[in-house]
């Protein structure tokens, strides 16, 4: 699908940036505010989809050289392996833990292992959604 539309391209260049920022914000705030892996992943995915719809896939593939199938596989792997990780520390499968650390810039910050799991979820969502949309739209 090839669309040559200057307005669309300009708007979506800015739009994608905003959506990406929003997606990352949603992903990170999910612990205490609305958001989390699913939503963050979905919003990020829509940003990529918008890119694919605006520019042709060759341009986008040059700019972001990821294989989204592999990203989704990586996500599943991350979700599963981060779940299995506690077993090697004598904890049951899927135990999560959290702690508070003093980081230089952020001050007192909470770090939780669930973030690993959540990023697995988010990567899966991104990979799958983008993969589905691009598969269909690129089919001749």
């Amino acid at each position: 699908m090839k669309i040559n539309d200057v307005i669309l391209k300009t708007v979506s260049q800015a739009g994608v940036l905003i959506i990406l920022t929003f997606g990352v914000y949603l992903f990170l705030s999910g612990h205490n505010q609305p958001g989390g892996g699913f939503i963050g992943g979905l919003v990020l995915a829509t940003a990529f989809v918008l890119m694919f719809l605006t520019f042709d896939s060759e341009t986008v593939n040059k700019a972001i050289p990821f294989d989204f199938k592999k990203i989704s596989a990586l996500g599943v792997l991350l979700a599963f392996s981060s779940s299995a990780l506690p077993m090697f520390f004598g904890q049951p499968f899927m135990s999560q833990t959290f702690g508070y650390f003093d980081l230089p810039i952020f001050g007192k910050t909470e770090l939780a292992t669930v973030t690993l799991f959540e990023s697995g979820v988010a990567l899966t969502v991104i990979g799958v959604v983008v993969n589905i949309i691009t598969s269909i739209s690129e089919d001749e």
């Binding site: 892996g37 989704s72 596989a73 599943v76 899927m94 669930v114 799991f117 979820v121 799958v128 993969n131």
Partner: peptide
């Protein structure tokens, strides 16, 4: 978390 973990798998399989 188990639900979510397997859900990622379902998503992946659908993809």
């Amino acid at each position: 978390g188990f639900d979510t973990m397997l859900e990622t798998l379902v998503l992946f399989i659908a993809g």
